[in-house]
Amino acid sequence: MEELIDLLKDIKDDVDFEHSTTLIDNRELDSFDIIQIVAALNDEYDIKIPASDIIPKNFNSAKAIYDMVQRLQDEQ
């Protein structure tokens, strides 16, 4: 999880990834960030995040992103 938060902070350092649960709902992340995060996660965890997983539920918190990565690693 810490590793993931470091990766996210590398992309956008002014967001409280440790505590925020409204990253999408409060527009703390925009579409530019999402594309960069997906590219970084694909490389780092050797997964392929499909467009159908780009939903607020999967990106509203670092924990949600972590759960999505875990699920995709299991599935792929």
Binding site: S31, I35, V38, A39, N42, I49, A51, I54
Partner: peptide, 15 residues
Amino acid sequence: FYPFALTDSMLHFGK
């Protein structure tokens, strides 16, 4: 938008 922007070629283009 997302299906297009998340294609391999567009992700490579971003990098």
